[in-house]
Amino acid sequence: MAKSALLKSSLGKKYWMALTGLFLCLFLVGHLLGNLQLLSGSKDAALHFNQYALFMTSNPAVKILSYLTYFSILFHAVDGIVLTVQNRKARPKGYVKNNPSANTIWASRNMAVLGTLILVFIVTHMVNFWAKMHFDEKMPLQTVTINAGGTDMEFYLTTNGDYLPKSRVDQNVIEIKNRTEFYDAAAGVKINEGYKDLYKITVAFFKNPDYGLIASILYALAMVVLGFHLYHGFGSAFQSMGVNSPKHSPFIRNFGKAFSIVVPLLFAIIPLYIHFILKV
């Protein structure tokens, strides 16, 4: 009884909804902290960001977390759909006149719609960046241009802090294998490793003369949607997990509201900053 209750019962589904939701909130914080590097404006912004991107795709602990995140997103979505379908069935005939704004906030009534939009956004977002990072064979490696004695020279940045002149790759002295590894072409020995230039991809995406403006605005709008979703979802998760008491609830509620405004706002600033302000 007890085991199946945790999976099948209405309350069990709510626990999973809450737990996955809260985990995704943690993910958002991590993701945001990384992304904020895009705003740093320093000359090392690209390096730092790409280092972060490498870390996020290679560290084994992060790997586990990322699988947990994929799972959470999927479970949160599927569970949400199941709950929504059940909830629709619980009132087969609706009211002719309904005045829900008298007793609820808009976001709380539209979690399924908001969630669906967020899911669409996540898919788009992953196609735009995550997929490129993971699977794109043509993903560029980060280079820097250094002015040496009056001439600009382009170098690959390597993970151990070296600079590999791009010209040597162009001259086929060094070969790039497995997308990021530098090999001595003659000896066939790995000599160094570069950074995938996610920074470049990102900036190029939001600066794209064809769709950069639209993309930036859509990304910002998606964050508004996320904000509404969090506005209800954050506090709701605690309620679902049974945390509600006169002592703690005001703090949780206020924290949740702040979270739902600050996190999406910071996320939204990034594409707008890149599109409108960042100079390349």
Partner: peptide, 27 residues
């Protein structure tokens, strides 16, 4: 009956002011 999504409509409309804390306690 449907599932609770914590909209809080019930608490507002309850003629006896039964609190959502009860739902949390049941959870």
């Amino acid at each position: 009956f449907g599932n609770c999504t914590n909209t809080g409509a019930c608490e507002v409309e309850c003629p006896k002011g039964i609190s959502l804390e009860n739902i949390a306690r049941m959870n």
